[in-house]
Write a protein that binds this DNA or RNA. Sequence first.
DNA 1: TGATCAAAATTCGTATACTGATACCTTGGA
DNA 2: TCCAAGGTATCAGTATACGAATTTTGATCA
Lengths: 220, 220
Amino acid sequence: MARQNHRTRIYQAFRSRIQRGEIGPDDRLVDTVIAAELGVSRMPVREALMQLASEGYLEGTTRGFTLPSLGHARIMQIFTLRRLLEPHAAALAAQSRSDVQMDAMSEAVADAVQTLETGDITQFYRASEIFRNTWLGAVSNIELRQTILRYLAQVQSVRFATMQDPVAHRVIVAGQQELLDRFAHGDAVGAGERMLRFVLEAEQSYLRLSRADQSALTAG
Amino acid sequence: MARQNHRTRIYQAFRSRIQRGEIGPDDRLVDTVIAAELGVSRMPVREALMQLASEGYLEGTTRGFTLPSLGHARIMQIFTLRRLLEPHAAALAAQSRSDVQMDAMSEAVADAVQTLETGDITQFYRASEIFRNTWLGAVSNIELRQTILRYLAQVQSVRFATMQDPVAHRVIVAGQQELLDRFAHGDAVGAGERMLRFVLEAEQSYLRLSRADQSALTAG
DNA sequence: TGATCAAAATTCGTATACTGATACCTTGGA
DNA sequence: TCCAAGGTATCAGTATACGAATTTTGATCA
């Protein structure tokens, strides 16, 4: 693991909080405030926040850091990247996923299926994160994996918003189930094809929801 | 433009120097030394170098920053990314390039052609950079462009080494000429196809040269 | 009530200093 | 000549402080 200095620890802590949706669009992250809370000086906090900003997790404003404000165009551009990269990545993952990773994905998908009954969106989100992180962890091309992780981080809020929609909920879970099947059989071609469809479905869900309620998705 | 604070200025200065190949594999970049040379304190230098490191331009070691040590596997992974992204990017560029950009690319290719006679590798490198940066500047998908720029930065040294080879030199210039033609006609499909071939040829050149002289290419 | 401008507060950017860790060098021994 | 142990110099990480910029607040006046 990374050496446990303050900067790394704070960086990881806030990245987690962002990925878990614990940072709202109106929250302002100011180094001095965080430093006081954590009992450290400004510098490691400042460096952690600036790194998160340079990676797209945050946006530096004149007064603290906030979640990045995503325009519609930017989101569509990222969908283009997803169409280009994630099918290939899924194909690689199907070839090199381990049994441990298969178990983790099976469990995550089972959890996600459950939420179709319970309607527990938080659990659905958490299970989806585990599923995604696990199959991405099986992608043997490290550069490809990190590129995907980088831009996915930027659209976290959009994905979270999409998952709230019942229709999208069902479509996503169905996609996860079928992807799991392809992964289980080591079906690289099938995984690539299904992942392309998965991304296209996500794009359609986003477009449908953004027409219905544009402000909620593009706010920042 | 970005506000001209020390950190931004130093960041841009060193990114330029790296892209121009002015930083050697054995150079150690130490914040205190650079700070003394520039007459500023460590902090802005440190922050600039750390940002360059987080973007892949540099690698942080226990004793200063150096160019990233590229293993063969990592380079091959980046070639995979290039195959996936650059054809699509070239197609976009063919659709939306401006006349000014066409002129700049024409001039750059003409300069590159000249170097087939003169053998001036430095001029060839410079002209290739202009050609590449110009067509990338015409890519309307900002996220795609920045993703490409990010990983290309990491293999700068490999590209520089490849250009030294006479065979690669001719192949690259031929590719630039044909790409220029596709761009001129707004031929998106043709540009995409030719760019794919361009990347495949670059990969072959790399593989051929890495077999011939592995140490020179993978050293770091 | 609304506008304008100045004072205050907040926050960023940078400087400087200190500490702990680590690479490198020196010295001694086999 | 090679290796090992210990000392030294260097460098990363962090703390603290100060000035500059900008935003907010508040007060005065139309």
